[in-house]
């Protein structure tokens, strides 16, 4: 199971002759950091300053992840705990929407983004990311488990629904939104945005890195380093979130 992980690390440390060795070996013999220095040299030469790409990624991934978690949780709370007309219909629409193949909705999606005049802006990536069905479904399933008594006492104390949402519901479903953040971060980080973003100044890091990696034989070393960086960031994010998922809730169970 850990073979992909081992290979990424080893490949990024291999000198060029080992990268092209056939049959390929899994483990590196003479580890070197040349690939990374190569990569940084290429990055320094780029037309658009590299910090710009990093900034773009922070904006797109950050807002896409944070926005989705908030927007989806906010919608999941009434669906899980309130009674109102249309609840079942709205919820089943979200669940069923996940079963439609995204390949054929891409063209209609592009048309809608053009109509809204948000083509070639960050919004073209962030807004659609906020409404993925999976996030709402995940949050709703976790919120459903919370005992009603938890909310009732707060309601009697005169807390508004927003307050209940923010200070009672959300802390109690922490494992859920941390897990959702992992999925969403992975999704947003992997997005090259090449479908909607035309200006080089707006493109995310992922795009620039993949451009470098596509440099063919001459860039094989830098490409291995790119693969490492592309995988390392979501892994770090995963480790931070996952250790929080596993450590916070072991001490505090939800009690009726």
């Amino acid at each position: 199971m850990s073979l992909p992980l081992v290979m990424i690390v080893n490949n990024s440390l291999k000198p060029l002759d080992e990268i092209f060795q056939y049959p390929p070996a899994i483990f590196v013999k003479n580890p070197t950091f040349n690939n990374f220095t190569d990569l940084f040299n290429v990055m320094g030469d780029s037309w658009v300053p590299f910090s710009r790409y990093i900034m773009n990624t922070i904006i797109i991934t950050g807002f896409g992840t944070f926005g989705h978690v908030i927007v989806a949780s906010l919608a999941a709370f009434p669906l899980a705990k309130h009674k109102f007309p249309g609840k079942k219909l709205l919820f089943s629409m979200v669940v069923l929407s996940m079963m439609f193949s995204w390949t054929v909705t891409q063209i209609p999606n592009y048309m809608i983004i053009s109509w809204l005049h948000i083509n070639n802006t960050y919004l073209a990536l962030i807004l659609p990311a906020c409404q993925y069905g999976m996030g709402l479904y995940l949050m709703k399933q976790f919120m459903e488990q919370l005992p009603v008594s938890l909310m009732e006492s707060a309601r009697l104390d005169g807390a508004s629904e927003y307050r209940i949402f923010w200070s009672i519901v959300m802390p109690n479903v922490k494992p859920a939104w941390l897990t959702l953040a992992i999925f969403q971060f992975q999704q947003m980080w992997g997005n090259t945005g090449s479908m909607f973003l035309r200006d080089e100044q707006l493109k995310p890091l992922q795009f620039a890195l993949q451009q470098i990696a596509a440099g063919g034989t001459a860039r094989a070393g830098a490409s291995a380093a790119v693969t490492f960086i592309i995988a390392a960031v979501p892994i770090l994010f995963f480790l931070t979130c996952q250790s929080n998922v596993l450590e916070t809730m072991t001490t505090s169970g939800i009690k009726e």
Binding site: V71, L74, I112, C130
Partner: peptide, 22 residues
Amino acid sequence: SKTSYIMMCPYFILFFLFTVLP
């Protein structure tokens, strides 16, 4: 249920635009 609808508003506006319509 006004509060419920308002809470769901941001999500479902985006959902109708970028999922239901396509």
